[in-house]
Design a protein around this nucleic acid. Sequence first.
DNA 1: TGCGAAGAGTTGAAGCATCAAGTAATGTGG
DNA 2: CCACATTACTTGATGCTTCAACTCTTCGCA
Lengths: 175, 175
Amino acid sequence: MTEGPWLDDDEQRAWRRTAAVMTLLPAALDAQLQRDAGLTQFSYLTLAMLSETPGRTLPMSALAATVNSSLSRLSHVVARLEQQGWVVREPSPDSGRVTVARLTDAGMEKVRETAPGHAAEVRRLIFDALDCDGVESLACVAAAILGRLDPSGGMRANPLSQEAPRASGDRRATG
Amino acid sequence: MTEGPWLDDDEQRAWRRTAAVMTLLPAALDAQLQRDAGLTQFSYLTLAMLSETPGRTLPMSALAATVNSSLSRLSHVVARLEQQGWVVREPSPDSGRVTVARLTDAGMEKVRETAPGHAAEVRRLIFDALDCDGVESLACVAAAILGRLDPSGGMRANPLSQEAPRASGDRRATG
DNA sequence: TGCGAAGAGTTGAAGCATCAAGTAATGTGG
DNA sequence: CCACATTACTTGATGCTTCAACTCTTCGCA
């Protein structure tokens, strides 16, 4: 710690705003997804991550790691997604104790129809509010904080592969 | 929108990281408060905001506005806080339809013992990860996004009084 | 003054997240 | 090759959040 537990005024102000953003932003994004697609941000993210995986298939624990959730939470959510017909669970051929989740065609379709609206809302609420430097700052600040969060597996998996090689210009589902 | 709904690669990366932070950071802060004080971030914030109000008293709707919550959520939470003896609700003398929440002495004590640990965790997870420019960037980015969120009362109240005059150097409860 | 609309708050039900415990499969040391 | 720990996942209970419906009070206004 830099100088005792307390925060100075600048930090106080920064923190209050950040806290407000952390409250209001997820609520706003959830509201859009709920209204337009009947999905939670988390369930959408789950579908989106599967949609970007070759074969649209991932073991539950790998999926949990990519969406930063506990296995328990994911299991409940996938159960609901399965009831909707967007995902199926099947035993892995590789190992008897892993279950893989696979995105169905209906699920893929759901992602396709949901993604643009969600991306637009992300853009509207975040990037339209920022100039170019802002995008850099945001990425930088988020990366710095991420590095602090659960730096090595308290209960969850790795906090995002720090520098995933990304194919240039491809259209992702904006998870 | 700047150029259609989709995000470019830089935005995509910034957004993924931000989403991860929005998932993991509240969880981490909640974990600390739960472990050390048996409080939610939200219930702590509620107590903290009352503790900073002259008279330790606020009408429910004013309190809801300062903690960015619906009245319903606040009502449930204050009911629990009341059971713990940290808050009492009483009819306002001013108007028959407002209820004020007042922080009890026990509640004030609770805030006093909880604040340092929470502030330390905020510092550890956020500010220790940032250099000085980082604090500026964070405040700036958060402010920009805040401006986009519910700019005038969708369902909730005002997203933080933008530039509240702050007494220099005083020690707040780090809500 | 009296009636309808809007404001302030509460409540109960339903949904989602978390936690603890459980099952089943797979490694691992003796 | 057999116990025992570990890994992978599921399940049920509990608690918090949200949503819709409700009460009670005040305001506007005719």
